[in-house]
Every structure is written in C-alpha cells, then in structure tokens.
Amino acid sequence: MSTLSARALVLEEPGTAPVLAEIEVLDPGTGEVRVKVAASGVCGTDGHAIEGTHPLPYRPVVLGHEGAGVVESVGEGVTGLKPGDHVVCALAVPCGTCRQCRRGLSEHCNSPARRKAMSGVRADGSTRLRYRGEPAYPFFGVGTLAEYTTLRQEQAIRIDESLPLDEFSLAGCGVVTGYGAVLNIAGVQPGDTVVVVGAGGVGVNVVQAARAAGATTVVAVDGLPAKLDLARKFGATHVIDASADVAAELAAIEPDGADVVFEVVGKPELLAMCLGLTRVGGACVMVGIPPMGSQLSFDAFTLSANRRVLGCRGGAVVPARDIDRLVALYRGGNLNLADLIGQRIELDDVFGALDSLGRSAFARSVVVF
C-alpha cells in the first residue's frame, strides 16, 4: 500500500468558499479501510457547514457525507471486508462499549469516541487525510466528496455488488435519516396520518417511509410547487403550499390533526406550527437540524394534551442494522432511490449543486467519480 493523492472538496474555514484541491489519503491503519468513492450526494448539511451554522470543531474539512464506493485496501485487524467489496459509507457508528451501548441502546451512543469519530478524528487524535501537508478532517468522519477516503471498518457497510452505488450513496444520510425518523423515532403505525413539513431530500424519504410503514394519509407541506410534485411521486396523498393556512388546510383533510408531524426544515420557528398540527396524544419530530444556540418557543399548555416533542439525531440509526433494512426494502420494491437523483454531475460541477441547495426541483445532486 502507499499514500494516494485525490481530488477533494475542502472547506478551510466556515463562512468561506470551499475549494477543489489535491489531498493525500494515507494508508488505512488498524481496523480501517480505504475506499475509492464511486458517488457522493450533495446534502444540505454540507451547505450548513459552509455557511457556519453547523459546528466544525476541527478544520480544514473534506466535505461530503453521503457516499458509496469500493474498498481499495484494508488495514490490519479488518474482518469481514476485503478489497473489491462494495460499501455504503456510514456516519453514526456506536462505540459498542459505553453505558448506552451495553444496555442495547447503541442508537443513543454519545461516547467521546463516537463524538470524535463524527468529527473525523481517530481514537488517538489523528486523521488519515492531509491537505497542504497538514491534517484535514473528513466531514462526519467520512469526507465523501473526494476520490478516496479512509474509514473505520464499522463505517463501511458492505452491500451486494448488484446494487447501484450511485443510488445507494444516498443511503448513508438522507435516506436512512428519513426512514429512521419514521421507524426508529416516531414508530409510525398502519392507519396513521402523517404530516411532513419540508419536502426536500430528507423530507421525501420521510414521506416514502411513512407510506411503507402503513400510514394511510401522508400530507407534504412545502413552499416550492416542484417539491410538492416530488412528494406526490414518493407517496404523499395530499400536499399543502406552505404559504397557505396550513392548519386550516389540514383540518379539511383530517379534523382531529395528525398522529405524527415531522419538521424537516431545521427552522425552530416552525415547531409551534408543527406541534399545533398534531392530534391529542400526537407527536412532533424535529428531523431538521436547527442552528446551534437557537431557541424553541411554543405554548407549553399544548403538551398537557399528551403531545410529545421528539428529537431526531440522524434517525437514531445503527448503520449495520438500518442499511441492511434499506436494502431489503429496495429489493422488495418499497424504497425508491432512483427518483431521488435529479442530476449526476462531476466533481468540477459541485459548486452549482451547492448553490442550488434548497431551491432545486429535485431531491439530490450526486457527484459520480
């Protein structure tokens, strides 16, 4: 093995423009694999990092966190993976040893090891990437907007070679977050009424997951007509323009309100509205990531009717478990990945994709290497 050079999208400081540059990808260490990235989604959270609304404790950062590729080489101690294996790059890998993990609640792991890994730092404080001769840190521990990256073996979830890597690149974040919000957090049941506020890349996955879980009424709310059309394609039974009186529109569909409302925009000011759309005993799930330091404001009396406000950290995902579930749903015809991809682009075109985040008529741009 030897150190590889790779083109990558690098963010030197939040609030500045990222650059396409050469990085060095070091040999995988013990328990690590080096992956030749086949495809990477361009997600809104990449945009938040660039804007400075998503915290970046270590910099510079190699952006990208939705990816899939082929194992190029493996380090010592790697079991279950070999060069040539096709993998999805996963973000939130539990440590396996903290109190939550030992209690069987690994989706709630919050150990220092997991927090470091999510910041792109290995257990010993180092990183396998170099930019201009200095350490660089993979976004969310994966850094998939690069030709190569190095992962912990637990972050490389093997999938069958017959599955399309460009489509399954999205499984690492947007798809699994949407499905996790529905199945792991909210526990949507057959017959439920669900409202999804925000029909972007994650929102439409909430829509299709809710339908797969048996929800009979799924209402999508968005301010862009193209996003409402997209939500219909993914199974929304009704749509509401966000500029309308959403509560009145929902009351005409379901007078008692929704069993579950998902806020998938990341705007704290929307929570009061979302909570008001729930029925007695209903739940509001915050899937969107609000800016650090933002505050919530709503009438606390609303909660006296057994309503719940639920957080959602990446869909409470355990990658080895949940990505396998996505594969099963895909093979069973219950997971539409192809229509999530609005455009396949080269790495040189990534700036246009970043500029259109939140405004495009489709769910995702995918960089294909």
Rank of each mutant, 00 (worst) to 15 (best):
G200R: 01
T237P: 10
T150D: 04
L271E: 01
A231P: 08
V317T: 14
E161Y: 03
K36W: 06
D256W: 14
V280W: 09
P291C: 05
E22T: 15
A209F: 07
G332W: 11
P28S: 11
F298S: 05
M292H: 12
A363L: 07
R321H: 14
N205K: 09
T302N: 08
G172A: 10
R307W: 06
E13Y: 03
G293R: 06
R364T: 08
A21Q: 12
G15R: 13
C89T: 14
Y179G: 00
A283F: 00
M273T: 12
R102K: 13
L347A: 07
N184Y: 03
E269F: 11
V206L: 15
S2G: 06
G41Y: 02
G288Y: 01
A171I: 02
Y148Q: 05
T53C: 12
G52H: 05
A68D: 10
S365F: 15
A300I: 15
A283V: 02
L63I: 09
R158K: 15
E12F: 04
V206H: 03
R132V: 10
G77Q: 13
V218G: 00
P83H: 06
A68W: 00
L340R: 01
I240N: 00
P83Y: 11
L347I: 12
M286D: 02
R158Q: 11
G31C: 14
L230M: 14
G214P: 08
E12M: 09
V207D: 02
R325S: 11
V285C: 07
R232T: 13
T127D: 09
